[in-house]
Design a protein around this nucleic acid. Structure first.
Lengths: 219, 219
DNA sequence: TAATTTTGTAAACTAAGCTTAATTTTGGCG
DNA sequence: CGCCAAAATTAAGCTTAGTTTACAAAATTA
């Protein structure tokens, strides 16, 4: 049985919302993520349950079945591999690739994905630091924490971001904050929890607590 | 205004059927190519005319407008560039890429196409020897003829194929006939117009007239 | 338990693409 | 010149996918 782009997107969203513990996801959370109404989501959930991609009991929220998990991970894998391709091979900036990968992630050939993975030399993280599931669906363990969890004086390396928007990524570029950049917490403002950082080109850098919660670092 | 995959496919087909002289294409020819009924084609033609992609007068056949020609060439360009990518970079066989490229040709980003073209070093022909339109829509002049036009004793190089089916391409592989292979016409059967060839690995090779009409060579 | 929020159901709409059946136009030919 | 067959168009309507609105039911919470 074949599935549509929309179905793949629902599964991707359910995967994201259910987090790494596979918690139940509510209809309204999905409705918000898809920018549709709860009634539309309920319809789609029935269809996905019918096809065996989710466990669905009325009013109980949904979780992915192994089959649904599998498909969601496949789509995520494709998305992240294509992003890696676009940045590493075609020279795109990390702020330019999300939209394009949203289309490429639905190309169906399994062989293509495996060849692409090999061509990129089996990358474990995409250009935003997100882990790329391998062919069997295993996610590399990231081992990073949010910058907002660091204490004054701690040193760390920037390894990921939680906001993929063009605006956010361009802001990081302008502040010389790239993946791999080393940094040290010089000070944390007690009132608004903003951070004063020293980054490894010697410059100082000020980031709001909101930004700090969107930066992932390896201490 | 946005256009669908189906619309792009219709334009591609109209482009192919109208040939290099841009002749009028009949409704029934399109119906045959799309494996639909004439009535469905008429509907779609109205829509395409509405959007300014084709010149359409009832009962008169259709031709592409400059805008339609442009879009058709863009899709063809993408198809052929992706095929080149799959073969040259990912190691696919020329018999494996058509279906995948049918999906990839609809990825919309213009920037992606230009980056891909540069990455491939601006190839002028795809893995089947078909010319790749450049960013402005100019097709390289192929300068090849059908093998079936060669006379006894003539030498030539295989530069293209007119049948992209897996079966045909696998047959060529098994006969050691690849793009770039040199060959000489040892004999032409007067009765059925089949060809006896000597190819540049020294082997002889027998091809039917049907195959000869699907092989393009540069004398 | 009452009030409020979240879900689910029912009915229906839109858009795309398609089909069948009947009708119209064209163009070749006696 | 007019007829006729082939090709094309129109009309009506079907299907699928995804969606909405309006309302009912369940769950949560206060």
């Amino acid at each position: 049985m074949q599935h549509s782009f929309t179905e793949e997107n629902y599964l991707k969203i359910i995967h994201t919302l259910s987090g790494k513990d596979g918690l139940e996801v509510s209809t309204s959370a999905i409705a918000e993520s898809t920018a549709t109404k709860a009634a539309s989501v309920t319809d789609m959930l029935k269809k996905l349950a019918e096809k065996g991609f989710i466990h669905y009991k009325r009013y109980q929220g949904v979780t992915l079945t192994p089959m649904g998990e599998n498909l969601a991970l496949k789509v995520i894998r494709k998305h992240r591999l294509w992003e890696a391709f676009l940045v590493d091979k075609l020279g795109f900036g990390w702020d330019e690739v999300h939209e394009i990968a949203e289309e490429l992630e639905h190309i169906s050939s399994d062989l293509l994905v495996e060849r692409l993975d090999a061509y990129l030399n089996y990358p474990r993280f995409d250009p935003h630091g997100d882990p790329i599931p391998d062919a069997k669906g295993n996610m590399p363990e990231p081992g990073y924490v949010m910058l907002s969890e660091l204490k004054k004086g701690q040193k760390a390396t920037l390894t990921g971001v939680l906001d993929h928007s063009q605006a956010f990524l361009q802001y990081l570029d302008s502040a010389d904050l790239n993946l791999g950049t080393g940094l040290e917490v010089l000070d944390i403002n007690a009132y608004d929890h903003s951070y004063l950082l020293q980054i490894d080109n010697g410059k100082n850098c000020f980031v709001s607590s909101q930004v700090a919660r969107h930066l992932l670092v390896q201490p």
